[in-house]
Design a protein around this nucleic acid. Structure first.
Ligand SMILES: Nc1ncnc2c1ncn2[C@@H]1O[C@H](COP(=O)(O)OP(=O)(O)OP(=O)(O)O)[C@@H](O)[C@H]1O
Length: 754
DNA sequence: CTTTACCGTATTTTT
DNA sequence: TACGGTAAAG
């Protein structure tokens, strides 16, 4: 099997060696090139899979690329190192942990773990978590780590009290994590660099360990990541990176597009290949995307063409509110599916923020349209899943204080804050992990006997589980743990919600069993490496399972089985494609999101994000915005996104859910040039016309009906034109009396609807 | 120590 | 609106 390639793609795939930068726009086949190149290296150039280090943006992308390489080769590329930076670093660090003062069984702390770890650190150091939200502290520390700043450097540049505290906590965080034998996400990227700096011979080893390094989505590489691949490739210089500066959307996380420029300086003589043919989208879609991105000033400059001329016009929908928007999209996608040209699996609705998913879900459910929500919450972030995994973590790593803190009183054992604080005090004093302190609870002063027994009981439970299950497979270990801890009973006591949680735990166990089946195949490879690296045995199955669980995100899940229309943020859609794509919530303030547009370079990043969203579509693109939207419980009035102004008028088809708001109805008025998005018309005039048509006649005492609040009586009228407000006393006592803007409230006179 | 109730704050995006 | 964290009560 082979992949069709154009000459430029082919040149990149067959590039003999040395630094190679593939710079290309959306849908030009960058990922395809990377895949084909890996297969080419293995098959045509005789490179052993285990000597290739390939970085993808998500675990899912890694899995897919691996599968495609396997299909091209006709055999699984056993031993291939492919994964995200975090996953690959973790794998490397498992083999090098001892040199860095960690055990090979270290735990990986996710954001939740890190935040609550920081919270305990704050409390220990007498800082109030209220005045210093752990979330904010963690964000500051993480930002510093991403910029590769040391605690002292952060402290020196701190100009707010919060930053000062963050610097102090940062200084204590490293040692504390080391004591817990744990690393956070940022450490995974930084510690390999530390290793190489402190142990140059290990750098040499790893430089010789791989012959080729490849990086996908290079534009979203941060400083530590870039440094890592630079170091790994600095001897053989076989570094192939592919990226698109217009799709750099993780600047807020420390990624820096400028690496695309420095690449050619860091690797003099690097080959540059540009791919200019887009194979994904119709001309119409490409024109729309190009129109938007053209407004960015800071670009490397690329051209992009397609042979798929024409195409369906882009539909721009104006909706009254977010429910209206969702209902229209659901109806439209349903209609399209019924027509039979595209299945639900070939459709996606993308949006800027996760909060926007709710009305969409409701609309899809209402119409019975299957959908697949790729949410903010990963399965592994659910409370019950984290609880059970915390037990497993303690089995693997008894020093994992965060895990211990999590389960010490779960299920309830009568251990409260006061007792726990005593335990922490003792552990700190002894310089021991919490589990050790609990085991020695009889030596802790000022504890009630039952609490003492409870501590000893947890410690005994963990010890017993570890003795019995340390070498077991993850599914068995989880199952036995849940049984021994009485966790299922604990959930069952929570009632209806607990039942769902129990199901999730069962799903976790089933998932672990499935994971072990695929993981065992990689096992011989791990054995080989253990020999090659001269470190006895690789990570245990449980350790590897936990690593995977910590690094798997929501984007990686919901892969196969549950099918339907995909709902996800634009960020998570990077690298994906569907025949039909809807980009929803295109309102100023939401997309571009006001908060990020305010930051330096923020608006351009928002625009790139929009470009990413638009270029996910192959055949048909819907864009939509809502005049009003509930945000944080408050009703917001919106203007269409400024990005819509950049759309070429030619192939735009405008729709509106409300005839009154249909611009064609007002087309006769001067000033509204045809084909321009609504924002181009003077907003002031629009609103006045609408308000005067819609709501001239309200009077006190009149019965009205609100789509959300139900029926009520008008008590007062104030303002005029677009400011016209009515005070309505609703029948529902819970709702009470509200003042509403007539222009937006969607009020009806009750007799009209009756 | 546990449960409940209320209040304040928060939603940007994710490894 | 909704969750999480805190305060007060049981
Ligand atoms: N030479 C080719 N012939 C046919 N189809 C191709 C060719 N190259 C790429 N494609 C198709 O174009 C689409 C986009 O390819 P791919 O995902 O590799 O692009 P990309 O540059 O990584 O895109 P993006 O940057 O937007 O994620 C895929 O459906 C792929 O199969």
């Amino acid at each position: 099997m082979t992949l069709a390639l154009n000459p430029q793609q082919d040149a990149a795939v067959r590039h003999p060696g040395g630094p190679l930068l593939v710079l290309a726009g959306a849908g030009s086949g960058k990922t395809r090139v990377l895949t084909a190149r890996i297969a080419h290296l293995i098959r045509e150039r005789g490179v052993a899979p285990s000597r290739i280090f390939a970085v993808t943006f998500t675990n899912k992308a890694a899995g897919e690329m691996r599968a495609r390489v396997a299909a091209l080769l006709g055999a699984d590329p056993r031993g291939l190192w492919i994964g995200t930076f975090h996953a690959l670093s973790a794998r490397l660090l498992r083999r090098e942990a001892t040199l860095l003062g960690f055990g090979p069984n270290f735990t990986i702390y996710d954001q939740d773990d890190s935040e609550s770890f920081i919270k305990r650190l704050l409390e220990q150091r007498g800082h109030s978590p209220k005045a210093n939200p752990p979330r904010a502290i963690h964000a500051i520390i993480s930002g510093a780590k991403n910029r590769m700043l040391l605690p002292e450097e952060l402290g020196a540049s701190a100009d707010s009290p919060l930053e000062r505290v963050a610097a102090e906590i940062y200084a204590g965080l490293g040692p504390a994590l080391r004591q817990a034998n744990a690393m956070d996400f940022d450490d995974l990227l930084l510690l390999p660099l530390t290793l190489f700096a402190e142990h140059p011979e290990r750098l040499v080893y790893w430089q010789r360990r791989f012959d080729h390094v490849l990086v996908d989505e290079f534009q979203d590489t941060n400083a530590a990541q870039y440094r890592l691949v630079k170091l790994l490739a600095s001897e053989h210089r076989n570094l192939c990176v592919v990226g698109d500066d217009d799709q750099a959307i993780y600047g807020w996380r420390g990624a820096d597009v400028r690496h695309m420029l420095s690449f050619q300086q860091d690797f003099p003589g690097a080959t540059l290949i540009k791919l200019e043919q887009n194979y994904r989208s119709t001309q119409v879609i490409l024109d729309a995307a190009n129109g938007v991105i053209a407004e960015n000033a800071r670009r490397l400059g690329k051209t992009l063409f397609t042979v798929t001329q024409g195409g369906e016009p882009v539909t721009l929908l104006t909706a009254a509110d977010e429910r209206d928007e969702a209902e229209w999209l659901a109806g439209e996608l349903g209609r399209r599916a019924a027509d039979g040209d595209v299945a639900y699996e070939g459709m996606a609705v993308l949006y800027r923020t996760n909060a926007q998913s709710r009305p969409l879900e409701e609309a899809f459910r209402f119409r019975g349209i299957p959908y697949r929500l790729v949410g903010a919450l990963s399965f592994y972030e659910r409370r019950e899943v984290k609880d059970v995994l915390a037990y497993l973590r303690l089995i693997a790593n008894p020093a994992d204080d965060e895990a211990f803190a999590r389960i010490v009183n779960v299920p309830r054992r009568g251990i409260g804050d006061a007792s726990f604080t005593q335990l922490v005090r003792a552990a700190t004093q002894w310089g021991k992990p919490l589990l050790d302190a609990a085991r020695a609870a009889e030596r802790i002063p000022d504890l009630r006997p039952n609490v003492r027994a409870a501590f000893a009981g947890v410690a005994g439970l963990i010890d017993e589980l570890r003795a019995r299950l340390a070498a077991a497979d993850p599914a068995t270990a989880l199952e036995q743990t849940v049984a021994a801890a009485g966790y299922a009973q604990y959930l069952a006591d929570e009632g209806a919600e607990g039942v769902e949680r129990i199901e999730n735990v069962q799903e976790l166990i089933a998932g672990a069993a499935g994971w072990a089946e695929t993981a065992e195949e990689e096992d011989d490879e791990a054995g080989d490496e253990a020999g090659a690296e001269g470190r006895g045995g690789g990570a245990s199955l449980i350790e590897r399972y936990l690593t995977q669980a910590a690094l798997v995100t929501s984007a990686d899940q919901g892969t196969g089985d549950a099918t339907g229309v995909t709902l996800m943020t634009v960020h998570m859609a990077k690298g994906l494609e569907w025949p039909v794509v809807a980009l929803a919530g295109l309102e100023d303030g939401l997309f571009p999101l006001a908060r990020s547009a305010g930051e330096p370079g923020g608006l351009e990043e928002e625009r790139r994000l929009c470009y990413v969203g638009l270029t996910r579509a192959r055949e048909k693109l819907y864009l939509s915005w809502a005049r009003t939207r509930y945000r944080t419980g408050r009703l917001e009035l919106s203007e269409p996104s400024r990005f819509l102004e950049a759309l070429p008028a030619g192939a735009l088809e405008e729709r509106s859910t409300t005839p009154l708001w249909d611009r064609s109805a007002r087309a006769g008025r001067g000033g509204a040039r045809s084909g321009r998005p609504p924002r181009a018309a003077p907003a002031e005039l629009d609103w006045e016309v609408e308000a005067s048509q819609d709501a001239p006649h309200y009077a006190a005492g009149e019965r009205v009906r609100h789509r959300k609040f139900g029926g009520g009586v008008v008590r007062a009228v104030s303002g005029s034109g677009r400011e016209l407000k009515v005070t309505v006393e609703f029948d529902d006592q819970e709702i009470g009396t509200k003042q509403l803007l007539v222009a937006y409230a969607g009020l009806e006179r009750e007799w009209e609807s009756a």
